[in-house]
Design a protein around this nucleic acid. Structure first.
Lengths: 233, 233
DNA sequence: ACAAAAGTGTTCTGTCTACACCCATGC
DNA sequence: GCATGGGTGTAGACAGAACACTTTTGT
């Protein structure tokens, strides 16, 4: 390094990794995607997908790359969460990890992942196995962020299929917030944002009355974001 | 490293630094504390206080230590902001920086810093010099966070002396939010949180009518936090 | 007595909350 | 025709916004 560069400090360096907390929604509850570790340390234990940051890539790129390598998931909502750097968090030595949190709808996942997903499994947030490293703490913080963020940013749509019903959307909110919501108030509120496009289609899968399908209005959202608006559920 | 540890990967590693965005309030406007760099790269330019993370300390500890070393400031509000890791952000090579944001009241600072503060200077957010590295971007994000956070967390008190008047508090909010606030509504709102202790003292420095002094009620805040409450200005 | 800064209430308006029945469809 | 799930309106409570004068005190 001192050869390539004029100004070079050579302090010892921690290793740098990324870890991704990937949330999915199956229509009933929120799930998190975990990988069964094939190597030591914590071989055989469950962990968040992640790995080492390479020298030539940004941290965001590393998170996206690791996620793709380990789960085949790509092009999804991915946002930096927090950086974890307690000295003893990794038995291999000093490893600092930048955690990300990601949202995907399970249909996209099934389409993308295919065979690659053998070592990956979805777990309920109410009932998941012991995790490697400090990944339980990372997961806890990601859940906290998800609960907070869904109230003031329209990120819920990332967890649903492109076309969805208001009942599905409400089920999602209730699952994330872990509380029941009033149906009429919820609908009024959501529709009043103007962020939902009413489609000329009904959901044909429901066995009884067919539900109206909606789509998230991305253009409208971009427009409102510029003007600094406030989404609040 | 492979000697000390059983499980060792040896990927090349980025350097890891911390940078602190320290905000102060002088009664009129918000200031940020910058250091004049004494060494290359960017020698003579202004930059955020910060430096390399040591192998035996956590990142939080590194931020507190660097802040103390460079400015004598210690024991203040300090919270992780975001991690910056674009490959070209530092001309010395690959350096990833965990940014922190900090709040201090200027009286504490003057008491602490003394002589050490020669290379440190406070700058207005409306008018500060070009910054080294990507520190302008870090500062931008810190300001954004401060504006957002002050609305739903009682962090404003960190920027004021222990005893303060409601007018001072309102001036602070107006400076941070960059908007005028209605005096009567602001007072009603603040007092209704129950987070202010009315003291048996008046501010004797004001030249005309003496203003009532208040103190932040930390115990009450801790209590309310546990029950998950909502502060909203 | 007057200038400067602190302090104080009320009305209006819009939003959140609570709440119960009808509609469409498949069996 | 009935069971299942989708869809709808209103009244009361509450909180935010707008707004102007009185009090204290130093000069």
């Amino acid at each position: 390094m001192s050869k390539e560069n004029k100004y070079c400090y050579d302090y010892p360096r921690p290793s740098l990794t990324v870890d991704c907390v990937v949330f999915g929604f199956d229509g009933l509850s929120i799930k998190v995607l975990l990988i069964n570790r094939g190597v030591e340390p914590f071989k055989g234990k469950w962990a968040l997908p992640g790995g080492f940051v390479r020298m030539e890539e940004s941290i965001d790129e590393a998170a996206a790359r690791e996620l793709k390598e380990e789960t085949s998931i790509h092009s999804i909502f991915l946002e930096q969460l927090y950086t974890f750097g307690a000295p003893e968090r990794d038995p291999r030595g000093r490893v600092v990890s930048v955690a990300y949190f990601a949202l995907i709808n399970l249909h996209h996942f099934n389409a993308m992942a295919g065979d690659d997903a053998q070592k990956a499994q979805w777990f309920s947030l109410q009932d998941f196995p012991p995790l490697a490293f400090d990944h339980a703490e990372i997961l806890r913080m990601a859940v906290y962020r998800l609960k907070g963020k869904i109230r003031y940013q329209p990120i819920g749509f990332e967890l649903l299929p492109e076309k969805f019903t208001l009942v599905q959307l409400q089920n999602l909110y209730e699952a994330v917030l872990e509380m029941p919501l009033d149906k009429r108030n919820f609908r009024r509120k959501m529709l009043s944002t103007g962020l939902l496009i009413e489609l000329n289609e009904k959901d044909m899968r429901s066995t009884r009355k067919k539900a109206q399908l909606y789509q998230f209005n991305q253009e409208k959202f971009n427009e409102l974001s510029k003007k600094g608006f406030n989404f609040e559920i």
